[in-house]
Write a protein that binds this DNA or RNA. Structure first.
Length: 899
RNA sequence: GGGCAGUUAGCUCAGUUGGUAGAGCAUCGCCUUCACACGGCGGGGGUCACAGGUUCAAGUCCUGUACUGCCCACCA
């Protein structure tokens, strides 16, 4: 007997050991010169501030499944791990820590603050890395990257300079989204619009000529001091006479023009719009178009400026209150109504975002977008396809990307201004002197770049670009990007733009967008809602493999995952099942691998069946993974292992293990080999338990156990595909099930050894049953088995029909005979019902003439079988009914019944 | 306002090119069978949201309706 495994599977110990083994052996560090088709995936870099959450767990699991599978298929696989500096988030975290010491970043100054953030990263940044490792991710730790590494920073500077030189990066004064809490500009997609119940104030603006007033509607009265026009629709008859006249800003009394623009919606509010170019994106556009005055009345801290006149110095909220009061006092407030509308919030801190005019840096995304659009699907395919439209729509309506951030943590913009002559210098390295005036008085831009700027370069910067490294040559473009759809715009689209622009090729061949993990009620998991499932806790409780299997099994393309703890617990049972199947194998295998037998000539039906099924699963599982059908792959493995391998095959070979040497050796060899192949198939999904079992299984004398992580995908064995024999085995299984059902439904104790009489339909069936007599006896738990179409059967017998074979269980004295009658009638009703349906089809002329021949034939065969079964069952029932009458109710019970 | 999903067994979900609905969990009954009670065997449970249409045949294709969820968006 081979060495045994511990009785219970203990994931913690096993996982720690294998993680260490793989890391120490650099198992997942590929050689660019190695053979094999290159296969590369970049990790969506988690924030250094982050802790592993369930979304990461899903992402890492799916990527790992793909990478491990690709390795099995002989590909040269590179999975680069890394983290993102996450500018605003990380700065927040460190600022919060500072606040506890009663300090803020300005107390430290820029240099000291940035040093402090680095120190923080060095201390805590590894936590997320440990957690990536805890998920079993087969990443190459020797190539670990961070977006602010020197290499990646060099890539950032190079990209910035080139885009600037090409006119694709520019600096200018524009209206942007301003978070007064973070004190920085935000990109358009960093603003989240949330529904908000607000008020709509209708305010009278007296006409400049004193002939009356025009009423405008606004949700933001605090911006009234910044109004520089009133705008109406050019075809709005109500206001036609006012166009070209002037109005007076309420309370302040400043005179502003009344202009016309078709942008105005006549239906909304009063049909008259106040224009505040510095505090609204649309008004900004109107201001440009109509050459209006630009008055900034709210500053970057949310305080009213001097241009706000008497409101200067007030916070914008206080100003709103005061100006509404003043307007009302002046008798100019016509109406106030409730209004539901969307208000922009900062995606990081949720503060209301203020449109703000300031000087910022922009990437001309409008110019880069078309190429990224055309690359899909020609060069890059998106899965699932439903995201295509979303991708296109975003690129089609894109605006230039504001990339400067007024924070300190990040890639500082490589631009300098000469204080002497005002020259702007953009360069990869700090210039010594001003190229214009040779002055030394140069000052670098204070701003840093948007975090997503460096993320956009990730697929090539992590490979060593701008150096032309072997890694770049070998692994760019990467094979597939696996990420959540929530960062399709932030990240995927921008990587497409940058990759195409700088590398001439899109950064990945495929994009697989996976779902969001939600709670059991379908809500997004979040810390604040307290409904999150912490993967670290789940790993500790159920083991990493259970978590991974659950996530994989639920990862159906295009659907969100509703996760709850009991589902993970459920799949832990599967891990345990596998473990115990392995324990069984080890108890029945010799110390060294069993002597090989020729699998193609194995004669026993159960081996042929198992080997056939194994071929099918190997093929189906491979295809499922190639097509990103993770859930299908998991289900295939689950069903095959549990319902076929464990439920049937292990039971079928138990007698073999007590048999003569030849039979035992054959069973041992097929068991050993099939279990090994199953382990390979399951390994991408559940790497730890499979590796552990693999290592425990015997190997041929003289050799040592290999690492399952390096084992190739099992090759196909076409000669083992035996559909005919497999169908025969299924017939035997159905026969056994029929006996079990009879026993269960008649209340016969499963332990009772019944007698069974089989009336085969023909000689072939007779031979088949005879050859497999022992397996029927064992699995149906029989006392005696008679296989003979002419064998007399007691009338008082329970019966069934399987593929024409009559299955007869003599009830000797008496079980509950009425129960058998009821059971028979139920079966009969089922058959009859099916027969009616089938015949209906066969008598339908349209069906007979229009349906394809093979479909018609199938229906005919079905009808024949059903009819045969019906006849036989009717006869059996008639005999049984007679017995029932003869017997009366009084017979004693010779068969043990349940209590 | 636009776009995209979803609606199938009590719950969570599968269902590939149209051919008489599947799984897990839950439930019910039986079983201390020597790998596993995190187990075994067997059973019950669905007019596939609704209304039309195409077809010999629709959970599957088309149209519309109703809910639910998500994304995008400049009605102030």
């Amino acid at each position: 007997m081979a060495e045994t495994l511990p009785k219970g599977y203990e994931p913690q110990d096993v996982e720690t050991r294998w993680r260490k083994h793989w890391e120490e052996n650099k198992t997942f560090t590929p050689d660019p010169e190695a053979p094999g088709e290159p296969y590369a995936i970049v990790i969506p870099p988690p924030n250094v501030t982050g802790a592993l959450h369930i979304g990461h767990a899903l992402n890492l699991t799916l990527i790992d499944v793909l990478c491990r599978h690709a390795r099995q298929k002989g590909k040269n696989v590179l999975w680069i791990p890394g983290t993102d500096h996450a500018g605003i988030s990380t700065q927040h975290v460190v600022e919060r820590a500072l606040a506890k010491e009663g300090k803020n970043r300005r107390d430290l100054g820029r240099t000291a603050f940035v040093e402090r953030v680095w120190a923080w990263r060095d201390e805590y940044g590894h936590r997320i890395l440990d957690q990536i490792s805890a998920m079993g991710a087969s990443v190459d730790w020797t190539r670990l990257r961070f977006t602010m590494d020197e290499g990646l920073s060099a890539a950032v500077r190079k990209v910035f300079v080139r885009l600037y030189q090409e006119g694709l990066i520019y600096k200018g004064k524009y209206i942007i989204n301003w978070c007064s809490r973070c004190h920085t500009a935000l990109a358009d997609d960093e603003v989240e619009h949330e529904p908000h119940r607000g008020q709509l104030w209708k305010v009278r603006y007296p006409l400049g000529d004193g002939t009356g007033h025009i009423t405008v509607a606004t949700t933001r009265p605090e911006t009234i001091p910044g109004d520089t026009a009133v705008c109406v629709h050019p075809e709005d008859e109500r206001y036609a006479s006012l166009i070209g006249k002037t109005a007076l800003v309420p309370v302040l009394g400043r005179e502003i023009p009344i202009i016309a623009d078709s942008y105005v919606d006549r239906e909304f509010g009063t049909g008259a719009l106040k224009v505040t170019p510095c505090h609204d994106h649309n008004d900004w556009n109107l201001g440009q178009k109509h050459h209006l005055e630009f008055l900034q009345v709210i500053d970057e801290n949310g305080v009213m400026t001097d241009d706000a006149g008497s409101y200067a110095g007030l916070s914008k909220d206080a100003c709103r209150q005061k100006i509404v009061d003043d307007i009302q006092a002046a008798g100019l407030l016509e109406d106030v109504e409730e209004l539901d509308h969307a208000v922009g919030h900062c995606y990081r801190c949720h503060t209301v975002v203020e449109p703000h005019v300031s000087t910022q840096w922009f990437v001309a995304a409008t110019k880069l977008a078309p190429v990224a659009r055309e690359a899909v699907p020609a060069l890059t395919q998106i899965f699932p396809e439903t995201w295509l439209k979303t991708y296109y729509h975003w690129l089609d309506t894109i605006r230039d990307w504001c990339i400067s951030r007024q924070i300190w943590w990040g890639h500082r913009i490589p631009a300098w201004t000469c204080k002497d002559c005002g020259e702007l210098i953009v360069a990869e390295q700090a210039p010594e002197t001003c190229p214009q005036c040779a002055g030394h008085n140069l000052k670098q831009e204070e701003d840093v770049l948007d975090t997503w700027f460096s993320s956009a370069l990730w697929p090539f910067s992590t490979l060593g670009w701008p150096e032309n490294t072997r890694d770049v040559q070998r692994w760019y473009p990467t094979t597939v990007l696996v990420t959540g759809f929530d960062i399709l715009f932030f990240w995927v689209a921008r990587m497409m733009m940058m990759g195409l622009h700088f590398m001439g090729k899109p950064p990945f061949g495929h994009v697989y967008l996976h779902a969001l993990v939600r709670d059991a009620q379908g809500h997004k998991m979040s810390k604040s809602a307290g409904n999150g499932i912490d993967p670290r806790e789940m790993i500790a409780k159920y083991g990493c493999d259970a978590l991974r299997f659950t996530l994989t099994a639920f990862a159906a393309m295009g659907r969100d995952i509703r996760l709850s703890e009991d589902r993970i617990e459920g799949y832990r049972h599967f891990i345990n099942k596998l473990w115990n199947a392995a324990r069984f194998a080890l108890m029945n295998l010799p110390e060294n691998a069993p002597r090989p037998v020729n699998l193609e000539t194995v004669s026993e039906l159960h081996h042929q069946w198992l080997l056939h099924r194994l071929e099918m699963v190997k093929c189906d599982m491979d295809r499922a993974l190639e097509e990103y059908r993770f859930n299908d792959a998991a289900q295939l493995g689950y069903k095959f292992l549990w319902n076929e391998f464990c439920d049937w095959y292990l039971e079928l070979i138990k007698p073999d293990m007590q048999s003569d040497d030849r039979r035992r050796n054959t069973a041992q060899y097929v068991l050993w080999l099939s279990l090994r192949e199953i382990l390979v198939l399951l390994h991408p999904i559940i790497p730890f338990v499979t590796a552990e079992i693999w290592a425990a299984l015997p190997v041929p004398a003289g050799s040592t156990a290999t690492d399952l992580a390096l084992e190739p995908y099992p090759r196909q064995r076409p000669a083992c595909q035996r559909p005919t024999e497999a169908a025969h085995m299924e017939f035997l299984q159905n026969t056994i099930v029929a006996v079990r059902t009879i026993k269960a439904e008649l209340g016969i104790s499963p332990g009772h050894k019944a007698s069974l009489i089989l009336h085969p339909v023909d000689a072939a069936q007779n031979a088949l049953l005879e050859e497999n007599r022992s397996c029927i006896v064992t699995l149906a738990r029989l006392e005696t088995l008679t296989i003979d179409a002419t064998a007399p059967a007691p009338r008082a017998s329970a019966s069934a029909v399987v593929d024409g074979c009559q299955v007869i269980v003599p009830l000797k004295g008496m079980v509950d005979l009425h129960a058998e009658l009821a059971r028979l009638d139920k079966e009969l009703a089922k058959v009859e019902n099916d027969l009616v349906l089938t015949n209906k089809k066969l008598h339908n002329e349209s069906f007979m003439s229009r349906a394809p021949a093979d479909v018609v034939n199938r229906e005919r065969e079905r009808a024949e079988k059903l009819l045969d079964a019906k006849d036989k069952m009717l006869k059996l029932r008639a005999r049984f009914a007679e017995a029932l009458e003869d017997d009366g109710q009084s017979s004693s019970c010779e068969v043990p019944q349940k209590p």
